[in-house]
Write a protein that binds this DNA or RNA. Structure first.
Lengths: 232, 232
DNA sequence: TAGTGGTCTAGACCACATG
DNA sequence: ATGTGGTCTAGACCACTAC
């Protein structure tokens, strides 16, 4: 259970920063001072300070010293729920219903690159109540084996997550009023406010999939968090 | 311009991973092999591999070696736009209009803790067209000096960002239909789909502010990205 | 049990910004 | 000018675990 020394140094400083004992802008002890305090080599305190710097808690300036950084609001971590897991966590029964499946010509507006696309339309249910309608496109050039998969019970998203590695993703979140088919499939009146999530996924420069999901705004929301304590 | 050696090693491996030359699961060279390849000490390659590990690109297992990690779907980075900057980026003119300002009793549903709250209602404009209506609460116990601030031109958010350090934040995103006053202030018909963003901010356990913003769903969306390349 | 990463040392030289 | 962090070395011992 004995933590590495550099980790103990890091946590000690981190605790002082998060508690407010060392407010933003405060100068931290120099590496030389920390060497004495912890009776260790300079590389060891350097490792602790580097970790705090990488975490954004500390800023280091040559000749001036190390300082407690001001938190910046520029980004937060957004948890992307796996719908099946999320529904189960609520104690509800999850079901994916496939509605249609077709193969369409390449469309750069959906997925960059050439080759035909597999289109899968479906609805995610929680306790047999529609939670989200989904319209998904998958590059058959990037994922040829998906042509053989049946999506009667498993959703295309779950299958892709388990079988296809990706390196980059982008998410767009917006609000729209449910129209026609979407409203019908969600079993809500037209005009209902919906949370729209669009996700694009790539492996390197090759587009893999594009999906657009509509959630009933009253039933669903997304949560993002930011905290210097990254531990979950 | 000559990069540190550990940084060059890191980038070299990172490039091979991101390009797909080293797919997920691939075993990387051992530290000993990298020492030979780059003709350097072990601490130097260790620093490069540690950075990749901290970034989530590499997993290291004792006795087995270092491996290319599989990207995890669980979280993405959500860029939180500063509204004024975002509007300026679009080439539009930004303006904050304060509508009302009052002091209300403590309400744990808004901000945990005791003490009165300052409530500031206002509208963010882009080219004199309403972009978002904002309803903000600020703990006077946590930020007493805000009682003296005028919000005729600067928004409470911008003032807080510049003056009050925080350590934790939480964001909730949902879709709602604009009602009554919100629709009026947005200058949109009632029932318009709106993107709702609620943000709570803390310093340690002390709540600082709670804000609820409504954006016209047609005018605004949020974007999140995940990519092993964190540099923007 | 042998090879791997994890940690740590006691030095060194350098670049840099600030006092 | 000087003290600070940035980098790097050439070792060392240890813990863990896959072989």
């Amino acid at each position: 259970m004995t933590l590495p020394l550099h980790e103990r140094i890091r946590r000690g400083l981190e605790a002082d920063i998060l508690s407010g004992a060392l407010p933003p802008g405060t100068r931290l002890p120099t590496e030389a001072e920390l060497m004495v305090r912890y009776d260790c080599a300079r590389m060891t305190v350097s490792k602790a300070l580097s970790a705090l710097t990488a975490a954004g808690l500390v800023e280091r300036r040559k000749r001036a010293g190390s300082f407690v950084a001001r938190p910046r609001m520029h980004s937060m971590v957004l948890d992307i729920p796996d719908l099946a897991a999320e529904v189960a966590r609520r104690g509800q029964h999850y079901r994916y219903e496939m509605i249609d499946r077709s193969i369409i010509a390449a469309d750069p507006a959906l997925i960059a690159g050439k080759g035909e696309l597999l289109r899968v339309e479906g609805v995610h249910h929680a306790d047999d109540r529609p939670l989200a309608v989904e319209d998904r496109y998958i590059s058959l050039a990037a994922v040829p084996e998906i042509a053989e998969v049946e999506f009667t019970s498993i959703s295309p998203g779950a299958w892709l997550l388990a079988h296809v590695p990706w390196t980059e993703a982008e998410l767009r979140i917006a609000a729209v009023a449910a129209q026609g088919e979407v409203a019908l499939r969600l079993d809500r009146p037209a005009g209902t406010a919906c949370l729209t999530v669009e996700r694009r996924t790539w492996r390197g420069a090759e587009g893999i999939t594009f999906v657009r999901q509509h959630f009933d705004g009253n039933d669903y929301d997304l949560v993002a968090k930011f905290g210097p304590s990254r531990r979950d």
